[in-house]
């Protein structure tokens, strides 16, 4: 140690300044770690609460019967009508939103003049940022006031929420399609539409799937748009989309406000079913996204 230049040694000594910088660094690293741990802890607490409180009600009966109520105001029966209703709502919403979203994305990315493309993109962004209760009240005034509540009205509100999600994912994957694919199609003498339908669409199928699953996961849990469009429904199973239907999110919303604890257990159990579905579909969406990226960039 003696033959080291003392000035060089100085560099490695922890004088006050260096120590303070190290301490600040440690504190900040600690805070960032704590923030992440907090987020994970909240997720775990919520999921565990839902599953544990809903567990007593989760039996075969819960999935195969519709709600009924005892003379003492207790909740009996299951949520079959809500599950069926949610399936109808999400299916029609997807049916409405996917074609419009995909075609709109093709317009923006492939065909539209730049100015117009920007306008459409802006409109999609604004729709995406719209509070969902506003979407609900729009469908209420456009449709429900004249024709009454129906599953179709609810689906329409959900479709408006799904539209920008599907359009955005499709646009993102269209951007990844190499322009050599387009040029190859055109060089073969194929017209524009054959290039789009035969080459670009199949290549971007992964992105469309990603957007669709993402949108399904999102709208399956949406409650606000359903309040004004399909909230006054019979508790029996309806497959008729022109009638209002029950849905899982609204069932949770309504049961949570009931005074009798038997409703709370049912609300938790419905939450567990919904959460399981939403997280499963979200995972599928992540999987599709990873696959689409790998295929197009690999």
């Amino acid at each position: 140690m003696t033959d080291v230049d003392p000035r060089a040694q100085q560099l490695f000594l922890t004088d006050g300044r260096v120590r303070r910088r190290r301490i600040v660094n440690r504190v900040m690293e600690g805070l960032a770690t704590v923030a992440s741990a907090t987020a994970v802890a909240v997720l775990v607490i919520v999921v565990v609460s839902v599953v544990r409180n809903g567990w007593p009600a989760l039996n075969a009966n819960f999935f195969t019967t519709s709600p009924s109520f005892s003379a003492f105001g207790e909740s009996q029966g299951g949520i079959l009508s809500s599950i069926v209703g949610s399936v109808i709502l999400v299916a029609f919403a997807t049916l409405f939103a996917v074609p419009v979203g995909v075609l709109g994305a093709i317009f923006v990315s492939e065909l539209a003049p730049r100015r117009l493309a920007n306008v459409v993109r802006l409109a999609l962004d604004v729709i995406n940022g719209l509070p969902t209760i506003v979407t609900g009240i729009f469908v209420f005034s456009a449709l429900v006031l004249a024709q009454g509540q129906s599953a179709l009205a609810g689906s329409l509100a959900l479709a408006i929420i799904a539209l920008p999600l599907i359009a955005r994912s499709t646009q993102e994957v269209l951007r990844l399609v190499p322009s050599s694919y387009r040029e190859a199609g055109l060089a073969l003498g194929a017209p524009r539409w054959r290039t789009v339908v035969g080459i670009i669409l199949p290549t971007s199928l992964g992105g469309i799937l990603t957007g669709t699953t993402l949108a399904v996961a999102r709208v399956a849990g949406e409650t606000a748009p359903l309040l004004f469009t399909t909230s006054l429904a019979a508790t029996t199973v309806t497959w008729d989309p022109t009638q209002p239907v029950q849905s899982m999110p609204l069932t949770i919303f309504q049961y949570a406000e009931q005074p009798d604890p038997s409703f709370h257990t049912k609300a938790w159990a419905t939450g567990a079913v919904l959460l399981f579905f939403v997280l499963l579909v979200s995972l599928a969406s992540k999987f599709f996204l990873a696959r689409a990226r790998r295929k197009l960039s690999g």
Binding site: V42, L43, V46, S49, P249, G271, L279
Partner: peptide, 20 residues
């Protein structure tokens, strides 16, 4: 996991908010 937090439907968070 943080992405999953975003996927929790708001009505479930509300239910958790009321009861827990």
């Amino acid at each position: 996991l943080v992405e999953m937090l975003a996927a929790i439907p708001s009505v479930i968070l509300g239910l958790w908010g009321i009861l827990v």
